[in-house]
């Protein structure tokens, strides 16, 4: 069994609790930040800031809580594929909605 344990500890990176505490604190701070930012008058940038903070928070969760930073290339590619398909769905649907108002040729 000991040989097996050595093997698996090579394979798997155990993230230390310090990092988890750090990430959780960052996430809570970002939450406060995004609430504060929504009260500022930024015009169209309000939405951009809110989404940017959300993307940052989500990246922290994916990279550290979900261990993607320490995972194989395949896992990183998998996450990328999900993101890509999601953006395809949103982006290409919006291509219709945005250009409908342009009228006909």
């Amino acid at each position: 069994m000991s040989a097996h344990e050595e093997h698996s500890s090579e394979e798997q990176h155990i993230v230390s609790p310090k990092i988890y505490v750090l990430i959780a604190t960052a996430l809570l701070l970002c939450t406060a930040l995004t609430v504060a930012a929504s009260y500022l008058e930024l015009g169209p940038w309000n939405a951009v800031v809110a989404l940017a903070i959300a993307v940052f928070k989500a990246s922290l969760v994916v990279l550290f809580f979900m261990h993607i930073k320490y995972s194989s290339k395949l896992m990183k590619l998998t996450v990328g594929a999900g993101l890509f398909t999601f953006l395809t769905l949103v982006g290409m649907s919006m291509s219709d909605y945005i250009s409908r108002a342009w009228g006909s040729f």
Partner: peptide, 22 residues
């Protein structure tokens, strides 16, 4: 396969410009 779905909707009232792209 993920980039072409709107060709099922050309006559449904989608925008002409996205029709062209799809």
């Amino acid at each position: 396969g993920f980039f072409v779905w709107e060709h099922h909707m050309f006559i449904m009232g989608v925008s002409n410009y996205s029709t062209l792209v799809f």
